[in-house]
Design a protein around this nucleic acid. Structure first.
Length: 156
DNA sequence: GCCAACGTTGGC
DNA sequence: GCCAACGTTGGC
């Protein structure tokens, strides 16, 4: 089983939005970056766990845990000219973009902010902390996953 | 709102 | 195939 981190802008889709979805499940549409797509298409498996991360907001932070509940399938929003993620170059018969479904496992007891994560040398190898990392999906090592979970119940 | 980083596009 | 221009991401 693998661990991941997925970014979402809370203004467009927050952890609470996920919690309100039927079955607390959402298809992860709109990924238009090949590296992120490859990870979803080739490596994400049902049961993999995901840190849900709020980006481009007042306090960027890991806010919850989700699990992959459906493995990669074509991202239908790429075929819909009305959709903001429409890709005119996409051939529906040879889909270029993929998505997975994720289901909320739980919100964290407290948000663990990017600023806090940066304080720990143990996490220095996280791609999230690399300078100007723009990937919306990235792997998390088991070691880092467990380290971050321990922070959850640590007094701030 | 600024700016650094970096992916994509398109002319040559 | 190179590379400049442009667009997007995302922290601050």
């Amino acid at each position: 089983m693998k661990y991941w981190l997925m970014k979402s802008e809370p203004d467009s889709f927050s952890i609470d939005d996920l919690a309100r979805k039927p079955k607390q499940t959402q298809h992860w549409d709109g990924v238009r970056n090949y590296q992120a797509r490859n990870m979803m298409r080739d490596e994400m498996k049902s049961g993999d766990l995901v840190f849900f991360y709020h980006s481009s907001c007042k306090q960027p932070a890991i806010v919850g845990i989700a699990e992959v509940c459906r493995e990669a399938y074509p991202d239908f929003t790429a075929n819909d000219p009305e959709n903001k993620y429409y890709d005119p170059k996409n051939d529906p018969d040879k889909p270029r973009w993929y998505m997975v479904d994720i289901r909320l496992v739980r919100k964290l007891a407290r948000d663990i902010s990017l600023a806090e994560l940066k304080q720990y040398g143990e996490l220095a190898d996280m791609p999230l902390l690399a300078r100007a990392n723009r990937l919306s999906i990235m792997p998390v090592s088991k070691t880092n996953w467990q380290f971050i979970l321990k922070l959850e119940n640590k007094p701030v």
